[in-house]
Amino acid sequence: MPKVTIDNITIDVEEGTTILNAARKIGGRIVPPAMCYYSKLKGSGGKCRTCLVKVAQSSAKDPRPMPKLVASCSTPVQDGMVVQNLTSPEVAEARKGIVEFLLLNHPLDCPVCDQAGECDLQDLSFGYGMEETATEDDRREFPVIDIGDKIKLHMNRCILCYRCVYVADQLTDKRLHGILYRGDVSEISTFIGNAVTNDFSGNMIDVCPVGALTDKTARFKSRVWFLKPMDAHRACGKCPGKVAIWMFGNEIYRVTGRKDQFGEVEEFICNECRFEKKEPGDWVIEGPRHIKRQSVISANHYEEMKKQSIIDPIAGEMNKQE
């Protein structure tokens, strides 16, 4: 089995594992951020370039470094490979540049965006971005459109990760939407206004790393951090039926897939579960869902948690003050 060293931590992984997945196996802060890679979608990754890392040594046989930074999500490890992520200033600089590019045309409308609080781009900007913008130009604008009767598309917020296109390709029987045009005017859209009605199309919302695709049955109802995520299940003929329901009091505001610490759903769910089952009686509630990611959602104390484990860097500061 190949042995790979990432930020001075060595681990054995399966043949053909990518650098990103090897880092995820180690876990913690050394995991490069990924905006477009989605382990459950074949062919995804390589596009956003936020997961760029430096390969200081290609393999045990060939100790030369790779000439360019590589996308960790699409580069397989080799035995004896030495990778630098946090330990490389070059990577930090490049990632800062990438975040700047991703935010260049992003409207930064977090105050009115439903994704705020569980947005990958928000986390990324907080972690790696700059405090002020260098651009003074107008941002590109698209009209807000409906993709089907349940999904709203804010193309302005899209970072073109292609994840929703892969969902349509791989989960639904017929893809009705895709990328139109090219360059910085390319947009996600349906073919001449066709509605996306497939049973699994709702998963586009879950895979969207930003607030470009939102659930029309839940949007503008509440900020995510005021809701209590609960694990729940039901007997569903189409999907496994294991979901996270987001409750306010005894009301179910929205239903999503269960997302892991890397923001990926454990299992895709069907549109019936997602959009139509909004009564507590529809579900068998298992208990509060533990949000593993450092997230503002956890700050609401819906679950007994130590402060320490919620937001590590800040918790340290808070303890000192107390």
């Binding site: 390589g46 596009k47 956003c48 370039r49 540049g97 990438i98 590019f101 991703l102 260049l104 045309n105 651009t135 130009d137 970072i159 073109l160 292609y162 990328i179 045009y181 090219r182 360059g183 910085d184 005017v185 390319s186």
Partner: peptide, 13 residues
Amino acid sequence: CGQCSPCREGTGW
């Protein structure tokens, strides 16, 4: 082509 972010956003900028 607009596939990866540095080129998509950077060239226009």
